[in-house]
Computed example of a mutant assay.
Amino acid sequence: MTETLISLLSILLGIIGAIGFGMLFKKYSFGIVGNTIAGVFGSVFFIKSFGRLGFNPQSIMQHGTFNTSLFIINCIVSVLGGILGLIIIKKIYNKLNK
């Protein structure tokens, strides 16, 4: 895997996390398109913020080898980023519409 493919998988997992969470908890849902956008931004933000701890795509592919444990951590953070991105955007949306 290359760093680009790992980044794209991270974004995809963020989208899946946001859409799945929106389907389970309807009060946080913006529909498929809104959840997708929230998942992309949440996933990218969390990976960029917390990836400095050592599980960014460059660290996963360091020295041309694939580190599975760092990839799993990256996937978990991506899904959580998508979910938390959706929750935060919904709270901002509710606060602005009061």
Results as ranks from 00 to 15, higher is better:
3 E>M: 12
4 T>S: 11
4 T>Q: 11
5 L>T: 07
5 L>P: 00
5 L>G: 06
6 I>H: 00
7 S>I: 00
8 L>Q: 06
8 L>S: 04
10 S>R: 10
14 G>D: 10
15 I>H: 06
16 I>N: 06
17 G>E: 11
18 A>I: 12
18 A>L: 14
19 I>C: 14
20 G>K: 13
20 G>Y: 11
20 G>C: 15
22 G>V: 09
22 G>D: 08
23 M>I: 13
25 F>A: 13
25 F>G: 05
26 K>D: 12
27 K>R: 14
28 Y>T: 03
29 S>Q: 06
31 G>D: 03
32 I>R: 09
32 I>M: 13
34 G>Q: 05
36 T>C: 09
36 T>F: 14
37 I>T: 13
37 I>C: 10
38 A>V: 03
39 G>L: 06
39 G>Y: 07
39 G>S: 07
40 V>Y: 09
40 V>F: 13
42 G>S: 05
43 S>V: 01
46 F>G: 00
46 F>A: 09
47 I>L: 11
48 K>I: 01
50 F>S: 00
51 G>I: 00
51 G>W: 00
51 G>F: 02
52 R>Q: 08
52 R>S: 08
53 L>S: 06
54 G>K: 03
55 F>E: 01
56 N>W: 05
56 N>C: 05
57 P>G: 06
57 P>E: 03
57 P>C: 02
57 P>W: 01
58 Q>F: 13
59 S>T: 10
60 I>Q: 01
61 M>H: 11
61 M>G: 09
62 Q>E: 15
63 H>C: 03
63 H>N: 15
65 T>L: 14
66 F>Y: 15
66 F>Q: 08
66 F>G: 06
67 N>D: 15
67 N>K: 08
67 N>L: 04
69 S>R: 14
70 L>N: 10
71 F>C: 13
71 F>N: 11
71 F>M: 14
72 I>D: 05
72 I>A: 14
73 I>P: 00
73 I>R: 10
74 N>W: 07
75 C>F: 09
75 C>S: 15
75 C>P: 01
75 C>H: 00
76 I>Y: 03
77 V>C: 00
77 V>R: 04
78 S>T: 02
79 V>L: 12
79 V>F: 08
79 V>M: 13
79 V>W: 01
81 G>N: 09
81 G>Q: 10
81 G>H: 10
83 I>P: 02
84 L>T: 10
85 G>D: 03
86 L>R: 02
86 L>V: 01
89 I>V: 07
89 I>S: 08
90 K>W: 07
90 K>C: 06
92 I>V: 11
92 I>Q: 10
92 I>K: 11
92 I>W: 11
93 Y>P: 05
95 K>T: 07
96 L>Y: 14
97 N>E: 15
97 N>Q: 15
97 N>H: 15
98 K>A: 14
98 K>E: 15
